[in-house]
Design a protein around this nucleic acid. Structure first.
Ligand SMILES: [Mn+2]
Ligand SMILES: [Mn+2]
Ligand SMILES: [Mn+2]
Ligand SMILES: [Mn+2]
Lengths: 219, 219
DNA sequence: AATATTATTTAGACAAATCTAAATAATTTT
DNA sequence: AAAATTATTTAGATTTGTCTAAATAATATT
């Protein structure tokens, strides 16, 4: 199936928004893609025609098996390019999403597979998100919780859920990255802020909002 | 200036066809871009509006200084990606043009410059074409002639002018690549074919058409 | 149940990039 | 210089992806 860049972006966004079997809404998709609901309705008709989504008027959107497969290929390319930019070209994790958003549309299985191999077949991207393999399979992520819900004291950072430049740059400033080990020193009930301590660093208090977006597991 | 992919492809094609001050013709450009003359006329009006080309009805097309600068940036990206694909991902020289045709449209100076640095700031691409630097300057190529015009006997291959998959695959099969050293053993007047000899190889006769497209200089 | 609000779709428009067919200009041949 | 040929442009359509404004459906509130 030959998809336009716009179609690919829609398929990927639907994949991102579709948790389990919940149908994706017109408005939700419009917001995610920074476009208008009317445009989403138009595109939904096209993607249904191409059998990438199930769609009935007023009933929301879900990917077909074919659509899911397509989405996983795009996600694979996106995350591999992010790895390339960070690992090989020394970009910082907050800079790579935008570039990968374009690079992901170069459709060549050979290129994708060679790139993966060149990078050592990585299984997670620079934000801790899993990378589908050539068959669309992802390693099921090891159990992780958001930092605000963690009960163990000694933790390691495994992913970041909000990947806005603002949060990623904040974490850079505080020296928090994937693999960073930390201990929870205190919970403050007043605003649910959390005091953490990293090795060789003074303790640090982070807001609930930040804590919610840092994924961790016990070390 | 924000250009579409189509506009970038036009600017690059105009740059390629414009030798010195000769204006590029509507038909020539249509042929190069595998499109119709009517489409070229339409685009010429747009590119003139954007001040990337000089264009008057029936008078042909030439790049402005701004257009030339833009073209050189695209060419730079194209050739750097070709280097990446060959040097890092082990693609063969006949496979990379098509992929670079897409990768060249990811517009990021930072990406381009980092890529260049990562590759060791190469000055020629896998086909022997010079790579513009960040300022659009190209090393003036060392003097070279096509193999059918060479008079010295001991030669080294410096570039290939016809970059069709057919010719590049043929040269692969015969073991001829950039840097290959060879001697001219004989010229056959009948069909202007040339017998050449590479070290540790049996002699080999190549057609005039092939010889015309191999650039060499004395070793 | 009626009303208000929100979500979604439809109708109609527009810009970009392309095309075909017809018109016109430039060039070459006779 | 007239006729024939070739090159280029124009006119009018089409496809893709988007938009705004209006209509309709679904949901929430009173
Ligand atoms: Mn994208
Ligand atoms: Mn990512
Ligand atoms: Mn291109
Ligand atoms: Mn090249």
């Amino acid at each position: 199936m030959n998809l336009s860049i716009a179609e690919e972006n829609y398929v990927k966004a639907i994949y991102k928004l579709q948790e389990g079997d919940t149908a994706v809404t017109t408005n939700g998709l419009a917001y995610e893609l920074d476009t208008k609901p009317a445009s989403v309705t138009d595109m939904a008709k096209k993607l249904k025609e191409k059998q990438l989504i199930d769609y009935e008027k007023y009933k929301g959107i879900t990917l077909t098996a074919e659509g899911r497969k397509t989405a996983l290929q795009i996600v694979r390319r996106h995350r591999l390019w992010e790895c390339f930019l960070v690992d090989k070209l020394a970009f910082s994790w907050e800079e790579v999403h935008e570039l990968a958003e374009e690079l992901e549309h170069v459709r060549s299985e050979k290129l994708t597979d060679r790139l993966s191999e060149y990078l050592g077949n990585p299984t997670v991207d620079p934000h801790g998100d899993p990378i589908p393999d050539a068959h669309g399979r992802m390693a099921k992520p090891r159990p992780q919780t958001s930092l605000d819900q963690a009960n163990a004291k000694r933790l390691v950072v495994t992913a970041v859920t909000d990947q806005s430049v603002a949060l990623l740059a904040f974490l850079n400033a505080k020296g928090i990255r994937l693999g960073t080990q930390l201990e929870i020193v205190a919970h403050y009930e007043y605003d649910n802020s959390i005091e953490i301590k990293m090795k060789h660093q003074p303790a640090l208090t982070i807001s609930e909002q930040v804590a919610k977006n840092i994924m961790v597991r016990p070390v």
